[in-house]
């Protein structure tokens, strides 16, 4: 797996005004990496991720997955949205295996995969529950399992824990780290939560707003086994402050 974003630009025109949402974005993700883009609201994170998913067309530049240009959405790039997008009429099990159903997998295969991924996200007892019977954190775990069950090359996540409270959010971060280590999935996630970015990632792209650009790339050199001790370490805090400083810098004139 090799994801590459090359010289990506995106403009929106709304009521006669042109908004430059993304300006010359360059970024890459390699097999098995967990990479995070962090930026303030309006820095174009969602737009960037949607272009990678193929849900939006770039104004200029391109996105390559294993050398192939992205022209539209496909099962090779799974996506988890910030809002809850589970199908309300399907049970947890049906939600998780729906991607395989769309791709024409047999009933037996679907059942097997659904069972496996329900186990991965720890929701086996809720196989027959409807989404409305789940808490927010559980819904997002189902959404992650649903995306993973289609066997994507890369998992894209748009602030997946943004709607959760602090405690649930930290639990889910630990859950995501475990999942990533156990399944070896390649993940590109975006967030405005600096701590979350440092805790999860091996590399962080710091984005600035108006126009959305990548200000800096940071390699997060923390132990692979992220836990609460890591969160409290001084190295962790150093990274956090470094990113906060980058986010605070005014936009350089002419940059």
């Amino acid at each position: 797996m090799h994801l590459e974003i090359k010289h990506l630009y995106k403009q929106f025109s709304a009521r006669g005004n042109t908004i430059v949402a993304l300006k010359d974005i360059n970024l890459h993700v390699e097999t098995g990496e967990l990479v995070c883009a962090v930026g303030a609201s309006g820095s174009g994170k969602s737009t960037m991720l949607r272009i990678v998913a193929g849900l939006e067309q770039p104004t200029a530049g391109e996105v390559l997955v294993d050398g192939q240009p992205v022209i539209g959405p496909g099962a090779d790039r799974g996506m988890v949205f910030q809002s809850y997008t589970l199908y309300p009429w399907m049970t947890v099990e049906e939600n998780i295996s729906f991607g395989l159903k769309l791709q024409g997998a047999s009933l037996a295969d679907r059942f097997e995969q659904a069972c496996y991924y329900m186990g991965v996200v720890g929701l086996s007892q809720f196989a027959k529950a409807l989404p409305r019977e789940l808490s927010g954190g559980m819904k997002q775990r189902v959404a992650i399992a649903r995306a993973l069950a289609s066997q994507p090359k890369i998992l894209l996540m748009d602030e997946p824990f943004g709607a959760l409270d602090v405690q649930t959010r930290e639990t889910m971060q630990g859950f995501l780290i475990d999942l990533w280590q156990n399944t070896g999935t390649t993940i590109l996630t975006i967030t405005h939560d600096v701590e979350e970015a440092v805790f999860l990632s091996q590399r962080v792209y710091v984005m600035s707003a108006r126009p959305g650009t990548i200000r800096q790339e940071l390699v997060i050199d923390l132990p692979a086994d992220r836990n609460e001790a890591v969160r409290r370490s001084s190295t962790f805090q150093d990274y956090r402050y470094a990113i906060l400083d980058l986010l605070r810098q005014p936009v350089a004139v002419g940059a």
Binding site: G54, G72, G74, A75, G78, F81, S83, T85, F98, S150
Partner: peptide, 29 residues
């Protein structure tokens, strides 16, 4: 129907026909 529910279906490998029959139709039933 939330636009993102349709987009999520595309990223699961669904085509437009499947979105119509397997997502929109059950949703509006």
């Amino acid at each position: 129907i939330p636009k993102e529910m349709i987009e999520a279906t595309y990223t699961l490998g669904g085509n437009r026909w499947q979105v119509l029959l397997q997502v929109i139709l059950p949703y509006i039933m």
